[in-house]
Amino acid sequence: MVVRYRVDGGFTDALGYLLSATAGSCTVRTRQSDVEIPLALVVAAKEVPPPPPRREARSGRA
């Protein structure tokens, strides 16, 4: 999922997996870390499809 929320000077997005949601916050697991976001700062959120599987490495051309 992606969650857009307010930060000083604008907005930022957290892209990852929703780990938990409570009455006051949600936690998203991004590539770098788990991000706890107060719901009062959230301006938009939506589900996005999972990333495609990684391709196999190409072998050298013959």
Rank of each mutant, 00 (worst) to 15 (best):
M1R: 10
M1N: 13
M1Y: 08
M1K: 09
V3D: 06
V3W: 07
R4Y: 12
R4A: 07
Y5D: 12
Y5L: 09
R6W: 01
R6K: 12
R6F: 06
R6C: 10
R6H: 06
V7F: 05
G9Y: 06
G10E: 02
F11P: 04
F11M: 09
T12G: 01
T12H: 07
A14Q: 00
A14Y: 08
L15N: 05
L15T: 10
L15P: 01
L15Y: 00
G16F: 01
L18P: 01
L18R: 11
L19N: 07
S20R: 07
T22D: 12
T22G: 02
T22F: 05
T22M: 06
G24P: 00
S25V: 08
S25A: 15
S25W: 01
V28Y: 00
V28F: 03
T30A: 07
T30V: 04
Q32S: 03
Q32Y: 04
S33F: 11
D34F: 13
V35Y: 06
V35T: 09
I37W: 11
P38M: 06
A40Y: 10
L41M: 15
V42S: 11
V42F: 12
V42M: 15
A45S: 15
A45I: 08
K46Q: 14
K46I: 04
E47W: 14
V48I: 13
V48F: 03
V48E: 14
P49V: 13
P49H: 11
P49F: 15
P50G: 10
P51N: 11
R54P: 13
R55E: 08
E56M: 14
R58P: 09
S59D: 08
G60W: 07
R61P: 02
A62Q: 02
